[in-house]
């Protein structure tokens, strides 16, 4: 699925940087019914993980009350040049990944 990632392309060593992520997902709560009364099965993202050069720096659990197309922003410390990897995991075996690189001077 489409994802929008905002990671600064350059940072100074030791800087606190903000990372913003937005991904496409319907986040169906599992509490809604169709017009003919059938329950719409739950289909949400259940967890999000961000790894910085392989090491996990941020993790979040998501729940049915979270809006569609979840937006997450968080902070980390720029330590070394490399790659941020993002992973969204959800119901029905949903998995989506994205990555962004950073140069640390």
């Amino acid at each position: 699925m489409a994802a929008l990632i905002n990671v600064p392309s350059k940072a100074k060593r030791g800087d606190i940087i903000e990372i913003r992520t937005l991904t496409s997902h319907i986040m169906e709560t599992g509490f809604r019914h169709t017009a003919d009364g059938k329950l719409v099965p739950r289909n949400i993202i259940t967890s999000f993980i961000c790894r910085y050069n392989g090491a996990e720096v941020f993790r979040a659990d998501l729940f049915p009350a979270i809006a569609a197309n979840p937006y997450l922003s968080f902070f980390t410390v720029a330590k070394e040049s490399g790659k941020f990897e993002f992973e969204w995991i959800g119901d029905n075996g949903y998995s989506s990944t994205a990555s962004a690189s950073i140069t640390v001077e």
Binding site: L4, N6, N69
Partner: peptide, 11 residues
């Protein structure tokens, strides 16, 4: 990068 409409533009 925070405008969810841009996800549709990408699609």
């Amino acid at each position: 990068t925070s405008n969810p409409g841009m996800l549709f533009v990408l699609d």
